[in-house]
Each structure stands twice: as C-alpha cells, then as structure tokens.
C-alpha cells in the first residue's frame, strides 16, 4: 500500500471474449495503479490487450473478472446515469479522431457540453472559445473536419475531450495516424495540458518514442499480461523482458534491431548515463586517469521527458580495464559488458 490512494486502480481485472462458444482471453488478470497527475503509458504490439485495458477504465469494456476503482469508488458494475457521469469525467481521444463529419469544429467541441443539461448557450460559447484557443484552432472554428489536416483533427479531438474538465484523459493510439512532426506537436500539447491542468493521462501506443517523450511510467503489455512496469527512465535504459528490449531497440535503431559489431576489436561495453552525469565529462576523465582507449560505435544523448540520458556503445581496449569500469561506476554510470 502506498501512502496516497491511486486515482485509478485496476484490481485483478481480466477480459475474455466469447467467440463461437469459446472464451478467448484478451487480458490476463492484471493489477495496475495510476496516480493523479502522472502520464502513464501502456505499450504493446497489436493484439497485446492494450486497447482492452484502456477501455476498462471508462468501462467501454466490462471486465470479466476483477474490479475497477476510480478515486476510491468501485465502479465495476455501475450503469445508467452513474456510468454516464463517470464517462463525462474521463476524456478520450482516438487514433482516427472520431469527429462528427456533419458538424463544424465549434460544434464538435460543444457536443459533450450539450449532452448534459445545465449549461446555457453563452457559457458553452465561452468554453468552446477557450478550448479553441488552447489547442490553437481559433481560426478554424467554422470549418468541417474534412477540411482539416490530421494534426488539426486530433487537436479538435483533444479540445472535445477536455470540454467537460475531466480528471483523466485516455489516449488510444492518438498519434499513430500522424506523421513524425505532427506527432511531436500533438505530444507537446498533451504534455502542456498535463502540466498546466494537472490532468492525468493514460495513453496506449506501439511506439517507444511516444513513451520516451511524454510518459512518467510505462507498463509493457505482451499477450494480455503486464511483463514490465516502472519509471520510463529505468525501463528504457535497462529493459529486462525480451518484448521491452525489442521496443527499446526499435526506438534506438529503427526496425532492424542492433547492428553487428563482430569485426570490432576490444570489449564491447554499453554505458548508460542519466540525470546530471549525462552532461559531466566522466568518460574523458576515465580515459585520462586509466589510459584506456575506446571506439565509439553508437550512441544517443537525449531526454526522457525531462531527464537527460545518454547511452553509448563502446569498444574498449587497455591494461586497466577494471579500474576504468570501476571509476565509471563510481561516477554513477551503469556499465554493462555486451556478450558477443
């Protein structure tokens, strides 16, 4: 038990679908706790169960076992008005945007506000204007979705999801249909919203890069099971499960996996830096003090959300290899020898 209750708790939730008289499991019993204010990522290949897991939170899918607890209240079995109230408090955006093609941008954003009584026309207009400005679409209010680019459509989706001032935003592959530049700008918008409004975001994706850019924590889903869960920095730098390693490797090297260093002389070492050590001259100090030599084979210095990190693959040669490794470790660098 943690000292603060999680915003969303899934307790041993499982889901199976009945297909031609047989139960096909989509999600094995899973426990998950998502804290208020965090950006929580769920990564997995298609069919891993991530879409099911996400939809359990707003009960678009009902679990076949287990419980869904939101803000301390068990909501697993609710229906009718209570269910609609719950859903109104949870925004959701989609891979294919799912906007109403027969309505303008303004009317799409006003749609959730008009579903429930209690808001007069002036208040709705004010709220819509505010949302249009937040997502940078004030000039497109009277356009129809078909007249917008993919990125603009997703911004409308985000504005619509925020209309009822939700506590949680669920993102269903929200950037998978977008090009890399548009993806970056939509992710930036999500991060802004997370920071400024304190909105909890739960997103599913099959791209490790999306996780790296915006998430605080990540769950890796494989065949309906959470196989790895932790802070993004830890999972990214030290993936343990084969599926996680594959995702990280895809993010680092593209789809081909790691390159082949079989012809390179020396000991192959992976050095992982995180936080402030990333920007310290550690490696050059070690080289000066121990006299080892190295070839830089591959590397990346970047940020995981706000945390700087570096990951370098070196071929190291020299008499005082052990001393060099010890000195690197003492400086906070994680050193792993790569078997070949």
């Amino acid at each position: 038990m943690t000292d603060h209750p999680a915003l969303i708790t899934l307790k041993a939730v499982a889901k199976s679908y009945r297909v031609r008289g047989r139960d096909i499991p989509a999600l094995q019993p899973t426990d998950l706790a998502i804290d208020a204010g965090e950006v929580f990522g769920i990564i997995g290949h298609s069919g891993a169960g991530k879409s099911t897991l996400l939809r359990l939170i707003n009960l678009l899918e009902r679990p076949t076992a287990g419980r869904v607890v939101i803000e301390g209240a068990d909501v697993t079995g609710i229906d009718g008005a209570a269910l609609r109230d719950l859903r109104a408090g949870i925004g959701m955006i989609f891979q294919h945007f799912n906007l109403l093609s027969s309505r303008t941008v303004r009317e799409n954003i006003a749609f959730p506000l008009r579903l429930r009584p209690g808001m007069d026309e002036a208040a709705i207009n004010l709220r819509v204007q505010e949302l249009l400005e937040r997502v940078g679409l004030a000039g497109h209010a009277d356009n129809y979705p078909a007249q917008l680019s993919g990125g603009q459509k997703q911004r409308v989706g985000i504005a619509r999801a925020l209309a009822n001032k939700p506590r949680v935003l669920l993102c269903d592959e929200a950037t998978s249909a977008l090009d890399p530049q548009t993806t970056a700008s939509v992710l930036d918008l999500l991060l802004d919203i997370n920071r400024e409004l304190g909105l909890t975001i739960v997103l599913i994706t099959h791209e490790m890069d999306v996780i790296r850019r915006v998430c605080d924590r990540v769950a890796v889903l494989d065949a309906g099971r959470v196989v790895e869960l932790g802070n993004v920095v830890d999972v990214f730098l030290h993936p343990e499960h084969p599926t996680t390693r594959r995702f990280v490797s895809e993010a680092e090297h593209g789809d081909e996996g790691g390159p082949d260093y079989s012809g390179v002389a020396g000991n192959l070492m992976r050095l992982s830096f995180r936080g402030e050590t990333t920007y310290a001259p550690t490696l050059s100090e070690v080289v000066r003090d121990t006299g080892i030599e190295y070839n830089l084979l591959s590397g990346r210095i970047d940020r995981i959300k706000d945390i700087p990190y570096g990951q370098l693959t070196l071929a190291m040669r020299g008499e005082r290899m052990d001393a060099a490794v010890a000195q690197l470790r003492a400086a906070g660098v994680v050193v792993q020898e790569i078997a070949r």
């Binding site: 707003n58 678009l60 269910l83 294919h96 799912n98 027969s102 008009r114 669920l170």
Partner: peptide, 24 residues
C-alpha cells in the same frame, strides 16, 4: 468509432441516435 466516442462522452442511446447517427 464515432459511436464509441459518443459513448465515451457519456451520451445516452437516444442522444446517440438523434445527435450522432441520424445527422451523420
């Protein structure tokens, strides 16, 4: 997807028919 999005926003079946399905 449009129907699912409306459900996710807390629309009733009647609202989905009148405001989503028929206009779309």
């Amino acid at each position: 997807g449009v129907v699912e999005a409306s459900q996710a926003m807390g629309a009733t079946t009647g609202q989905i028919v009148r405001r989503v399905l028929l206009p779309e």
